[in-house]
Amino acid sequence: MTVCVAACVHDGLVFAADSAASLLGANPTTGEVVIERVYQHGNKVFNLDKRLPVVAMTSGLGAIGNAPIHSLAKDLRREFKTDGSKYQLNPDKYSVAEIAQKAHDFLFAEKYSAAPKIAGNHSLDFWIGGYSSDSDTHELFKVGIVNGAATIECMCRDGQSDLLWGGQPSAINRMVMGYDNTLVESLRKAGVSDADLPGLM
């Protein structure tokens, strides 16, 4: 039930996330997905390299195989500093785009592809933001894995201002947009035509 938020402003970039981690299971009678347990101290915001102004946050899957995402983030951080690693970073010459690509390769090509297959719909978002070595403006990328397909998307660059969020976005949608993201379907069920929706929204 994650809510993660990236606030991009002229002066910098802020990541925030809740700390609840849900353990899902299946109802043995109906087969429906149910929340079996909620842990209140999950780590969803990470410093990806303590030498660099680059951070990450996550929503969606809490683990790949038996490895929690926070543990994988620490493993990736270690790889960034390991001589001879294909993920090694040069702290004097790197880009946020390069870090996003390395995170994609590590999380998807190396970890997810080797883990037991996940049945049903699932997704993982791994947001990476910060400053490249030769830049004084921030960038924000999102590495996504959705049902076995991976993407890298630039969400913000050149220091632009924006507010982005992921996970279970209903609460943020209500606060920022003024309505829940299920409102459109609710209005349609109530008989509102598609032509009338924009004015009501």
Rank of each mutant, 00 (worst) to 15 (best):
I145Q: 03
N173P: 04
T137W: 09
G144R: 04
L140G: 03
Q160T: 11
M155R: 09
N181L: 14
G159R: 01
L124P: 01
G130Q: 00
A149F: 11
G129C: 01
K189I: 09
D125K: 13
N173I: 06
I152N: 01
W127G: 03
C154G: 08
L187K: 03
R157F: 14
E153L: 08
N181A: 06
T137A: 07
D162C: 10
F126K: 00
T182E: 14
S135C: 08
M155W: 06
L164F: 07
G148E: 07
D162F: 11
W127Y: 10
F141D: 01
G167H: 00
Q160C: 12
A171S: 13
Q160H: 13
V146W: 08
S186R: 15
N181V: 13
L187N: 05
M177H: 14
N173V: 05
G159I: 01
F126E: 00
L187I: 08
I172V: 15
L163M: 09
C156Y: 04
N181Q: 12
D136F: 12
A190R: 05
S133H: 05
D180M: 03
S170G: 13
E153V: 13
R174D: 09
S170W: 07
E153S: 15
L187E: 10
E139R: 10
C154R: 11
W165H: 03
S132N: 07
L187Q: 06
T151K: 12
D134A: 12
N173M: 03
S135H: 13
T151Q: 14
A149M: 15
I145P: 01
V192D: 02
R188Y: 09
G178P: 01
Q168G: 13
E139G: 06
I152G: 04
Q160I: 07
R188E: 12
H138D: 00
W127R: 05
L124K: 00
Y179H: 12
G159E: 05
W127H: 06
D125V: 08
R174G: 07
F141M: 02
L164M: 15
G129T: 03
E185D: 14
